[in-house]
Structures are given as C-alpha cells and as structure tokens.
Write a protein that binds this DNA or RNA. Sequence first.
RNA 1: GCGCCUGUAGCUCAGUGGAUAGAGCAUCGGCCUCCGAAGCCGAGGGUCGGAGGUUCAAAUCCUCUCAGGCGCGCCA
Length: 546
Amino acid sequence: MRKDVVRIIGKALDEAAGQGLIGEARPDIIVETPKKEEFGDFSTNVAMLLAPLEKKPPVEIARMLAGMIAKIPPVEKAVVAGPGFINIFLGKPFYRAVLEDILKKGEDFGRLDAGKGRRVQVEFVSANPTGPLHIGHGRNAAVGDALANVLEAAGYEVAREYYINDVGRQMQTLGESIRLRLLELEGEDVEFPEDFYRGEYVKDIARDYMQRYQPDYAGAPSFQDFGREAMLERIKKDLDDFGVRFDAWYSEKSLHDRGLVMDTIEELRRRGFIYESEGALWFRTTDFGDDKDRVLIKADKTMTYFASDIAYHRDKAERGFSAMVDVWGADHHGYEARIRALFKALGADDARLKIIFIQLVALLRKGVPVPMGKREGEFVTLRQVMDEVGRDACRFFFLMRKSDAHLDFDLELAKSAAPENPVYYVQYCHARIKSIMAFAREKKIEVPQTPGPAVFDGLNAEEIGIIKRLGAFEEVVERSAAAMEPHRITFYLMELAGLFHPYYNRNRVVTDDGNITAARLLLCDAVGNVVANGLRLLGVEAPSKM
RNA sequence: GCGCCUGUAGCUCAGUGGAUAGAGCAUCGGCCUCCGAAGCCGAGGGUCGGAGGUUCAAAUCCUCUCAGGCGCGCCA
C-alpha cells in the first residue's frame, strides 16, 4: 500500500526532473501515515529533504510536486502543509482495491516476498536438559517461534533449531542426582548435596529408571544418558503443547564426537588466535573487542562450554544461512562479544548474526509478585503457567512486550475473561465477526465475492479508515521481520481490534439495505481474515466461538 | 570500576528524525426488548529521568549525567 505511494512520488519526481524543475539527486523518499486524518492518507517530507539540495524553499518545491502528484491516479488530491509536507489523499477506488486484495488473498494476505527465499536460522530455547522449562524459557520459545513465523511470512526460508547442552559438568550432576535419588528409593540414607538438582522431577526419573531396570539393572543405560533422554522427552512435550516445533535438535555432544571442537581450536590456532598460559589454552578474543581473553581448555584438560559454543557457531556459519538469530536470556549478554569474536577470527561476517535478548519475566498474581527462587528446584515452570492460564493467553502475554523489556505477567489477568485482558480482546474480535457472518448466512444474505463500486460506495469514512489499517498489515509484517520484533504484530492486532469493536457497536452490519449490508459483511470478513492471519503468526488460536 | 538493557500519564507499556506525544489498566459517570456486553461511549490526567549538542525539525541521533536491572570465573 505504502509502496504504491512511494511509486507515485517517484513518478512525480521523475517528471519534475524531466521538465528541468529539479535536479537528478534523489533523497530517500519517506512516506508516513500521518497521525491525523486531516493530514491525508499518506504524507511525505520529500520536498523538505530536497530543499537544501535544490537551494529552494521547501514549500515552493512541495507546491510544484503536489501539483504533479495530484494528477496521478488513484490520488484524489495532494496538498502542501506546514513546513513543506505533502499530504496525499487517495480516492475510494484505491481502498476498494485494497479490500478486494485482502479478500482474494485470504490466508495469504500478509505473505510477502521481501525475504526472497533466503535461508535464515533461528536458534531458540536451547535450555539445558537438566530440568524442566521454566517461565523464562517460555518467553524465549514464544518470541523465537513467533519471530520464525514472521520471517517465514516475510518470505524467508526458516530453520528452527534447538541446541542441546548434553555434555559436561551439569549432565554429570544430573546423572549423579538421579543415582542418589535411586539409592533413596531403595531405602538407603543418602546425603543429597546442595548443588545437585533437587527438583521433584529427578525423583520421577529415578523412579522410572528403577521400575524399568530392576532388579538386576542388566543392560541399563547410564544415569546420565537416561536422564538426558527423559528430560528431552519432557521438554519436547512441553514445547509441543506450547505449539512450538523445531526442525533440528543439535547436540553439543555430536560436536565432540565429530571432532569439530578440536577442529575449530586448530583453525583458530592456525590463524594465530590461540595461546597457552598458566596451563590453559586461550582464545585471544580481545583482538576483536572482547573485554578479556577466554579459556577453551582448562588446566585440568577439560573443555569449557565456550569451546563447544565456538564449534557450534562455526558450524552454523558454514551452513550457508544468510542470517542466524540466537535468542538468549538477557543474563547471557556478556557472551555476545566473544561469539562475535569467533566470527571475526574466522573471517566470517558477524553482521549475519543477530542476537536477541529476552528479559526476565516477573510473575504476578493480582499484582503481587510470585516468588521464583531457583533454589530447592521450586521455580515456576512453563507447564504450570500454561496449564493455569492456557496456551493462547500465555503466548500472547509473552509477545506483548519488546523482548528486551522486562515483562510483568499477571496470572490472574491472563486467565480472566474480563475486558482488561488483551488476549480476549483480540480473539473476541475474531469470534464476533465469525458470529456475524453466521448470522448473515442464516438470513440467507447474498454476499458478492468482491465489492463492486456500487457496493463499496456504501462505506463511510470510518470503514475506509479500517480498510486503511488492514492494508497496513503487510507493512507491519515486513517491519516486524526486518527489525526482528514479533511484538509489533501483537500491537497491531490490539489496535485493529480497537478499531473494529467501537465500529461494530455503532453500526449494524446486517440491515435492510442490500448494498450496505454486503459492503459491511465484506469488511467484517476482511477484518476477521487479517486478525486470524496475525494471530497465526503469534501462534495463538483465532476462535470462532468463545 | 567496565559493558549491555531500561527510564514516556497513578500503574503496565506503544511510539519509522516530523505536525497538538498515544494505548490499556486503574479512577469517576453512562450504554444490552435489536448481528456476541470477553463489547462500547464520556471525563480527568505528561518538565518523554536530567543537561548539553547535531538538525529546518529530537521521545527518537551524539556526548555527558542520574536512577533501576543484568553481566563481568580455567562456573554452568
């Protein structure tokens, strides 16, 4: 929609240049949708940008361009305002075409080719398989998945990946924790160390292990392997119920098994970024802006997690993605510099790597914070929240904020069927429209496929305004993808619902007037369609009944 | 101390360098014989943390500063 206007302005500029009225220099054409209706459907500051280049007053240039723009259909009029804005008013035929386009495209409205099929990887959640997913992972999952959806809609080919930290100290601790719990079950008196995994889930796993392999434990897997599988199964189930699926589960262990960790270290050594000191092996990340150098192999000859991480990212970088997105908890932001250092050390373009940080979620209950101490394993799990408030509310709430902003998640609000709950505000919009459509069908009202001029002329300014917002959906998707900010979809939907509900309350859709009824039904259909498409990107249901 | 994030209405937050800074909640007052009241209408509310700077134009960009959060291990 905006692109059409950009094209129109471009045409006017070309014509002005052709007539020798301006030079060939072209500033970036900025077209915006003004906040006020009286400023038109679109507005551009191109004359003000041109003024210094042409050494003419902006208003003079604006007048000249406005005259040319006004002659290009479907522009109805173009007026100069303020310091040199050109406000452009489009005619009804334009908005009729927009409505037609939305209805014709249906589910595909909002699907773009901006990505041109380029491959993008989104790696998210990647929680250690040593415990169940907690609320923070939930936000990570919601953001990562919605972002992947948005990128897909924008025309990228997206790969969703989960990186599993399945070797090292914490896996050993998990194995040991299970072993001790098993001994307990067998009646032994054990002292359970403070820093072991103390959650109930460990006891569950130990119980499973016992039931499956007792009495002689012949052929039983190691506690660690058993624990890993049990935890992954549980995590997958949680994510599945949350509506999140991955294309790949990438094992850290597999990096070691294939020798890629040592390979990577060797490559860095060849490139001269590795040195030994105090018995340890270091990567000189300070060459690339990190605060300090980082250890890859400790003095005890075991590897750090960072060693795996660089091997993993090296592998990613070689897989030919045009962009790689890592979604991390905000407490990991200190890692960004060292991962970027790896890219630079390998001569790879680290601009391809985008790291999104997910800030903490504060759970509230009627405004009172829910304690979330991680000690004793009593943190709030994604499962608990999902079970309490439902998947839709849960996902929607996680996407109501910019990911790098703290999020207050009020459980009572999320599950309340009250007007102040934004999830239902948007879903209700969809359900309401479906209900209206059903009502019209019951009344055997004929609705044309597309709005002809006679039908469309029945629509008033408020309805045209809604169509204008509907048309902007494509742009919202595009910007959301470009900025990698899925929350923009959420805000758009709340705004759209905020246009529709008041409109509905003031206007009857099904009336005695055939043309008006048809036009309004088509408008409703389009709104419902866009709401459904937007909710799909968020991974939230668009119910027909509530 | 250094680095990253955040300071916008009482609260929670939007806000592409543009025109008189917006929502929702909360508060107060109204609307269901009529397509879904999980909805709508109306009212009050602001030194965009502060100070400089760039610009025709700054909540937005730059510098400094104040406040809060997080991170700064041969931890995971």
